[in-house]
């Protein structure tokens, strides 16, 4: 049987279908790739960086913050670093943030991905309120927790005596020595990483993590009733009521029917 030549209409429809198909194919591969490469959460950003989701939208990857950094702390993620490509980050164990008072990396940002207002108090740049992350201590491997005297992190901290405090307690093992344990004050720590750099253990026993990774969240169910400012959180509290087999009737009914619904 001889094949008929394709009609123009059929050609048009086939071409349209091909275009849509190819666009979807490319679109899905592209989206999947972008989703994967932006998924890294263990990344420390320069001071003043806005929330990670917004940062990924807003950073244009120009490297002006990297050029401005006098200590070569900041790096741009290269292909092969397995970090969101081209965005700035730092590795405190190699080069920490030295918390320059004039914060040269922030005002140069052309897009506002590094937000000057987030590191400004009373109209002046203030690096002490920067929030790059928060230091975390591995108390099993910190030698101060063993009873060996070491205050390397405490001494290295640029907010000396504020971001890291020393807690004294008796060393029951020897009966005559003291533990001098470093404790991080989460609300003061800027995440600069000078402690991580200074830590004497082979792999740092104190290290900086992004705040969202390192910190928990008590939520609205738990309020410090003795603290007026904490009680304010109740104003915006949300609650969620769920119904289960046990709670579908009132508590009294549930107890009075021989707790049958429990079994």
């Amino acid at each position: 049987m001889k094949k008929q030549p394709l009609s123009d209409r059929r050609k048009f429809i086939l071409n349209m279908a091909r275009g849509v198909g190819l666009a979807s194919l490319g679109g899905f591969v592209w989206s999947a790739y972008v989703d994967e490469v932006t998924a890294s959460t263990l990344l420390l950003r320069p001071p003043g960086a806005i929330k990670e989701d917004d940062f990924l939208k807003t950073c244009i990857k120009c490297g002006l913050c990297v050029l401005a950094c006098p200590f070569d702390t900041l790096l741009l993620a290269k292909p092969g670093d397995n970090k969101p490509l081209g965005t700035p980050y730092f590795v405190p164990r190699e080069i920490p943030c030295y918390m320059c008072p004039e914060i040269p990396c922030v005002p140069v940002c052309p897009t506002g991905a590094l937000d000057e207002s987030s590191v400004t108090t009373n109209g002046k740049l203030d690096i002490n309120i920067a929030d790059m992350g928060v230091a975390v201590i591995d108390s099993q491997n910190c030698i101060a927790f063993w009873g060996i005297q070491c205050d390397a992190c405490y001494r290295a901290c640029p907010l000396l005596g504020e971001a890291i405090t020393i807690e004294y307690s008796k060393n029951e093992r020897t009966g005559k020595h003291a533990f001098m344990k470093p404790v991080i004050q989460n609300d003061i720590c800027t995440g600069c990483g000078l402690c991580e750099k200074a830590c004497v253990t082979e792999k740092a026993a104190i290290f900086v993590l992004p705040r969202e990774v390192a910190l928990g969240k008590a939520g609205d169910y738990y309020i410090k009733g003795w603290d007026k400012s904490d009680e304010k959180r109740l104003e915006n509290a949300t609650s969620q009521t769920t119904t289960t087999d046990i709670s579908k009737e009132s508590a009294v009914d549930s107890l009075n029917n021989d707790m049958k619904d429990l079994y």
Binding site: V34, T38, L56, K57, K61, L85, G86
Partner: peptide, 10 residues
């Protein structure tokens, strides 16, 4: 859709 500059990542 993804909320990031898509071409800039590739």
């Amino acid at each position: 859709i993804m909320g990031v500059a898509a071409f800039e990542f590739i």
